[in-house]
């Protein structure tokens, strides 16, 4: 096996990855790109076929991981209260070859299984003024995402025509405070991808959030 092969069959109980590695990772990437370049829009992301990541990893978050992780990207996984985290670790290691790291600020990507228990965004790598691209991209699993929903955040900034309304369920209550503090670091700062089971949205560091 090479770390590049995203089309490997199921072995030893690991769930299958993409059936069509080239096409599905391209489609998933475009969904992430649309989400990142238009904060507040919600993009469907549910790979077809026998795609079956182990719990607590959801299909949308897994698709993001299989699309962007590899041996060059250290990945930080949040602890899974049910203790099933190691299955996810095995799955990601097998399908992407990514090294897992315990230190949040050493990670290119962080994967948070439960949005209600997201660590403070300040624990992740924010990059430096001269190399702001070295910051962590934080993928947070949430219960649901709705654009233009009720009781929502107001988003402004690059990628948004005027202002966007956006609501998310399954996130820590004071997460907006983290986002506001993160936005103030610009050009440093983390970028957040929110992943509901079958859809994603992104909040890059440029997005101003009003709760």
């Amino acid at each position: 096996m090479t770390p590049d092969d995203r089309m490997v069959p199921t072995v030893s109980g690991l769930g299958p990855g993409f059936g069509d590695g080239v096409g599905q990772s391209q489609a998933a990437f475009r969904a992430v790109l649309r989400a990142m370049s238009r904060p507040g829009t919600v993009e469907a992301l549910a790979p077809a076929g026998a795609f079956a990541p182990p719990l607590p990893l959801t299909p949308a978050a897994a698709a993001v991981g299989l699309t962007l992780f590899d041996f060059e990207t250290p990945v930080y996984l949040s602890e899974d209260p049910a203790g099933a985290g190691s299955a996810v670790e095995d799955y990601l290691r097998f399908h992407t070859g990514a090294p897992m790291v315990a230190q949040a600020d050493a990670a290119a990507f962080a994967l948070i299984f439960n949005g209600l228990e997201t660590p403070p965004l300040s624990v992740f790598q924010a990059g430096s003024d001269q190399a702001p691209e070295t910051s962590t991209t934080v993928i947070v699993q949430v219960a649901s995402l709705v654009a233009d929903g009720e009781a929502c955040w107001r988003l402004t900034g690059p990628g948004i025509d005027g202002a966007a309304a956006f609501s998310v369920a399954g996130l820590r209550d004071d997460f907006a405070d983290d986002l506001i503090a993160n936005q103030a670091l610009f050009p440093r700062g983390v970028d957040v991808i929110l992943a509901a089971p079958d859809r994603i949205a992104a909040l890059p560091r440029t997005t101003r959030v009003e709760a």
């Binding site: 080239v22 990772s25 962007l68 990207t73 991209t137 690059p158």
Partner: peptide, 18 residues
Amino acid sequence: EQSKRMIRRAILKAVAIP
């Protein structure tokens, strides 16, 4: 695919830091 992933990651960071 590895080169594409590397470039895709760079594109996402570029979008995040206009």
